[in-house]
């Protein structure tokens, strides 16, 4: 397997469960037991009510494209050779939105509102990165 040349996430205490789960092929998100709100990105407190009562939940991994752009120019190594690629905000079924790339399809076929599902790409032994592809 070719060496991963895109930027890699930095894993911290508050985000380790997310990346551990991604490595096992499962997208997880946080929900607050006090106020009931989901949140993304993961953090050590509930961003809504500031409680500590946050729990990790398995996400369905399904969502829709909230918006996207086909990127033709990026100087960052790893992306410079990938253009054109699709940068998107996906709204998960649970209601929160996350940045991602839409993969395994032609950029011209991506539309707002299209159904997508998570797929993981292994970057190294520690990190697998969640992307989204058109729903089956």
């Amino acid at each position: 397997m070719a060496e991963w040349n895109k930027p890699l996430p930095t894993v911290s205490g508050e985000t380790k469960p997310y990346w551990d789960s991604c490595r096992q092929g499962q997208l997880v998100i946080q929900k607050c037991d006090s106020c009931g709100e989901y949140q993304f990105y993961p953090r050590g407190i509930c961003a809504n009510c500031w409680s500590n009562d946050i729990k990790w939940h398995k996400a369905s991994g399904k969502g829709t494209v909230w918006t996207f752009t086909v990127t033709y120019q990026n100087r960052t190594p790893g992306f410079a050779e990938d253009v054109p690629y699709v940068l998107a905000l996906v709204e998960l079924e649970e209601g929160v939105r996350m940045f991602t790339n839409i993969v395994e399809c032609e950029p011209r076929d991506v539309k707002i509102g299209m159904g997508v599902e998570v797929t993981f790409v292994r970057a190294n032994d520690q990190i697998s990165i969640p992307y989204f592809k058109p729903a089956a």
Partner: peptide, 22 residues
């Protein structure tokens, strides 16, 4: 990348123009 938010954003190849384009 910083743990947050970069590690949930920049690893997807965000650009400034891309964020406005979306």
């Amino acid at each position: 990348l910083d743990p947050s938010p970069d590690s949930f954003e920049e690893l997807y190849g965000l650009t400034t123009v891309g964020l406005y384009a979306m």
